[in-house]
Amino acid sequence: MATEDATAETDGERLPPIVTALATNRRILVGLALLVPVVVAAILGEAVAPYDPTETHVAQRYAGPGGQFILGTDHLGRDLLSRVILGGRTSLLLGFGATALGLTLGVPIGLLAGYVKGRTDEVLMRVMDIIISVPTLLLGLLILVALPSNIVNVILAIGVVYAPRIARVTRSATLSVSEQEYVLAARARGESNSYILFREILPNVTGPVVVEGSVRVGYAIMIGTALSFLGLGSGPPNPDWGFMIATAREHIYQTPWFLIWPSLALLVTVMATNVIGDGLRDVLDPRVTGERQ
């Protein structure tokens, strides 16, 4: 691997090739072109939304696109563009929040299992396998049946669902890295375990972990919207794509646009994270994960 050969070189010489590779990868660029507008709109929120997303205009229910409301209105006469923009905030917060939680839980477990090996590894991975054996949506449902459904608990549910998958990827990357010469050298120097784990191994497993994380963001958004579609999301009146789609289905014969816009926003966002994930995979090459070990 390129990074191995480059250990003798300084960081300054090592970084640019990766940065250039990332910045010129066609998939990453296409994905970012799709994702950045959604993220920016969601962050700016009220500042760019033309209307208050909860404000009803009863005289203009089911308005089509064009006219006073750029994308039209819903069954209560609320502006769809504003609701899609602020709904994005919920979905993105959920996607990134759940992935961050999954990484926080999964990476240390994977590092530990892959580095310590033996019985600890066996037990940790068995537990992860068992969590994975519950279908994701059902595990999410189970957690949200027990806890009140608000955005924090949805993030918690999806984060817990994803942690074992991230732990698995981290573990297999750690397994192959921990046999590398620089790790053996560090051990021979008498470095502490935590030094070896966080300074030597962690930087060298970031590739596969970043790839896994980027793919998870999209899936987390999908599961989050699926849960709120089933009525277990953050709940009204906050706009939320899954809940918008669920409501729109009941008004499909009055206006298809109510369904189309949040679906399209969801599609574009999830697709962007998938394309970026593939681009990252091209560049960071997950073959290092050592699946065949």
Binding site: I245, S263, V270, M271
Partner: peptide, 18 residues
């Protein structure tokens, strides 16, 4: 396949139904 991967089943179900 990218489009397929990114359509949640509740959207595709609704569209097919429609």
């Amino acid at each position: 396949s990218y489009v397929g991967l990114s359509i949640p089943s509740f959207v595709s179900a609704t569209l097919l139904l429609l």
